[in-house]
Each structure stands twice: as C-alpha cells, then as structure tokens.
Simulated assay, not measured.
Amino acid sequence: MIGKAWVQTGVPWWRLCHKSAQELVGADMVFIPMNNTKSHWWLCVLYPARNEIQVLNSFNRTINYEEELVELRCGIHSILQAILASSDKLESRWSNYDILQWDVVVKKNIPPQHDACSCGIFTIKYMQFWNGSEITNPFTQKDMEKFRKKMPAELILSPLNELTTSKEHVLATQNFS
C-alpha cells in the first residue's frame, strides 16, 4: 500500500510512514502480535528503555526468534533511518534507533498455555498485563473460558468502538438490572 501511494502521489515512502514512526518512537513499549505459522500467536514487545525486543510466547516452543524477527526489525530500521536522514524530525522516547542491535529476550516468567487453542487470548492478556518485566495481573489457563465470554462485551462496549449501533443493540437486548 505504501508503494502504491508513493507511485500515485510522488511522495517518498518514508514520508508516508512518518506518522506511524512518530507513534512508534513516542511509546515506552510497543506490542506487536505475531503469527509466523498461521496457527499460533505470540507477542513481540519493543522495549526501547532496555534496547530489547522481548518475546512472550504462551507455548514453550523452540523457535529461532532472531530469524523470525529479521523482516520486522529490518522494516522498522529502514523506515527510521530514512526519516532520520531527512529533514523531518521525530519526537522520541527512544535513545537508540538501531533496532538491529537490540537484544532479543525470550521471557520465561509468563503464564503458560496448556491447550491448543488459547494462544490468541494469551497474547491479548500479555498485552494488557505486561509491564516490561512481569505480568502485573496473573492469570492461568483456567481463566481462558471466562476471558472468552467477557472479551466480546469488552470490545463492543469499549469507548474506542465507533460502531454505536452495535453498542446500542447489545445494551437494548440485555437486562442489566
């Protein structure tokens, strides 16, 4: 899509990425859900305060995360380097833009998955409760069924949900008394 916009507008691709890059480097942590096998979700966390790319995987799998993250790291690196070489400036919390040199750290002190179908929920819960060092609100495999039932309501009723008709429909069909 970026390439298509560049061809149509003549605007350099990195300038089209400036807003996204600004949001990226303006964050203390960046959560990126990953799915490398089309069957399993895990979480990549960019943690610039430690120059780390943290991996939270609910399955204790042997995966070469350095290899799995090459394209992501190279893409982010290329965009940041192009913007830094331009006259555009970034307001940043990052002290080190060279994400290619950051350590990849696989976190072990996280709740594990014990079934074959909860990886997506574990990934979402990691995003909710990871502070860069630990899970702040512990959960287990036993909590997954409760999360499965609660999550749709949280999404529909979220203030970020702009589909007000779906909110109104849910609220109209529920008896909250």
Rank of each mutant, 00 (worst) to 15 (best):
C74V: 04
N60W: 12
E52A: 03
Y65G: 03
R50N: 13
L84W: 03
Q54G: 00
K107L: 06
K108A: 11
N96V: 10
E67P: 00
F31A: 14
N51Q: 15
I110E: 05
M29A: 11
G75P: 00
R15M: 08
E67C: 08
P111D: 13
I53D: 01
A21H: 09
R15L: 08
S78A: 01
V45G: 02
N35V: 01
E67Q: 15
L84K: 10
V25K: 11
L24W: 13
L72Y: 11
K19V: 13
L24I: 09
R93L: 13
A82L: 01
N35T: 04
Y65C: 03
D28I: 01
Q54E: 12
G75I: 00
S92L: 08
N64C: 06
D88Q: 12
Q113M: 12
W41T: 06
R50M: 14
I99M: 13
S58R: 07
I110Q: 09
G120W: 09
K108E: 15
D88G: 02
I76R: 05
A21W: 04
S86K: 05
R50S: 12
Q101L: 15
Q113P: 04
V105F: 10
A116I: 04
G26Q: 10
V105A: 01
E91A: 10
K107R: 15
F59G: 03
W41H: 09
Q113V: 07
